[in-house]
Design a protein around this nucleic acid. Structure first.
Lengths: 236, 236
DNA sequence: CCATTATGTAATCATCGATTACATTTGGAG
DNA sequence: CTCCAAATGTAATCGATGATTACATAATGG
């Protein structure tokens, strides 16, 4: 094993152990021709940290700053150059997850007929639940507010308000077209949201086994629950 | 300052810093006449730890084994004589909280007229939500399954199953009396639970500010949401 | 070209859950 | 009553984590 090999192995071990990438370049202090080669500065560490944290969450692992740093092959203190604390990182992660959530829902809404408010309402609920059940860790992060202070992610707040406004418009249309039994619209809106949120969280929090609902039945049950609710608010 | 004074001050500092209560008795190695005086053995540390943890949760603080030990004036390792790990402590805490939750709900149900299934269903939902909103930290612990492995608290599992069976009976009675629109009972049951669970968690997770619902309106909104749901499943 | 700023590293702290070896108490067998 | 074993608490220690500080290196713009 050459001297460089030994050094490389040493670096590898350190990377395995702690994820640190020593500043030492094996040769040529300035490798101009390969700007992609990891240099002392990372490139876009902020972005990479968010992605690493998202992936950690998706794997069901606990999101720790150090682990994200390890995956970015960077020292444990480096993330704090981009986020004042762990919560700020989580807020950024939540912002990204919420963006995807909103995109998914709005995509599904685009396929529902504009002229059918209750159909759109149903599509909203279904898209909401499908995403929540297929991205449980991300849904947890954006909904719980346990990982960072409320409102510390402007993106999350904005996208959330947008989704609330969307259901508000849909229900208003349904009411205008005389599709609803008489009831306070805000109450319907909140009840509907509580229903899907509660269903998503029952899944997330592992309640369904004790309700005797098998894994494969959950999506069908979600549909049934939404339909039950809509039948309850719709004019007979 | 006397020598004993110095020792007392030293002890005090250690208690302040780490919450440890040294075994050293200022005199009389065996104080028979006061069995309550803290001796080397604690008496019922297990119980005290659970209560300390419950109180920590109620204060909104993070529940840590060390902090519970501090409050019990015991060394950081002592709790592990009673709980194999942190999760086991949390499971015991959850068991205790769930016991209170069930007692509260069954108490409220006792006041509802037996002959009115839908009224009992409504009372169940209201009691559920009231307790959840007035004991947010306890509700969080018993519902989330984030603090300990599923099913590691037999008490929690049993009480939970009991509550599920209760709503099942109530709905069956309602159906027998012809009070319900035709629908799958299990679907109604799960939808109802998702509704109240979702509402409770929206409150817990701080969603209501962004829905424009003030603190004082929440209980009224809870009532409205439950009534909306019942009106939806009841035969017109 | 150089200085200012941005970004990463190294070293260090306090806290936490957990484990181990040791100390003290308690309770039962003889 | 005595003595020993089991139960229970203490002390010391480990590894992981979030966080902070001083320092090193790169990037940028006048």
């Amino acid at each position: 094993m050459s001297v460089n090999g030994v050094i490389a192995a040493y670096i590898h071990v350190r990377v395995m152990l702690e994820g640190r990438m020593p500043a030492r370049q094996t040769s040529r202090p300035r490798a101009r021709q390969t700007p992609k080669a990891r240099s002392y500065h990372h490139g876009d560490l902020r972005r990479v940290l968010i992605d690493a944290a998202l992936q950690l969450a998706a794997e069901g692992a606990e999101v720790s700053v150090r682990e994200a740093a390890r995956r970015a092959a960077v020292s444990p203190g480096a993330p704090f150059r981009h986020f004042p604390n762990r919560d700020a990182l989580m807020a950024a992660v939540a912002g990204e997850a919420q963006r995807r959530f909103r995109a998914e829902i709005e995509g599904a809404m685009g396929e529902a007929p504009v002229a059918d408010p209750l159909g759109r309402f149903r599509a909203f609920g279904l898209a909401y639940l499908r995403w929540a059940m297929r991205n449980p860790a991300h849904f947890e992060i954006i909904s719980t507010g346990r990982y960072f202070a409320h409102g510390s992610s402007a993106e999350l707040t904005r996208d959330n308000a947008e989704l609330i406004a969307l259901t508000e418009r849909i229900l208003a249309e349904a009411a205008e077209q005389g599709l609803l039994r008489p009831a306070d619209l805000k109450r319907i809106q909140i009840a509907g949201r509580a229903l899907v949120y509660g269903f998503a969280r029952m899944n997330l929090d592992g309640h369904f086994p004790r309700w005797g609902v098998e894994e494969g039945e959950i999506e069908r049950m979600a549909e049934g629950v939404i339909d039950l609710f809509i039948a309850g608010i719709a004019k007979p």
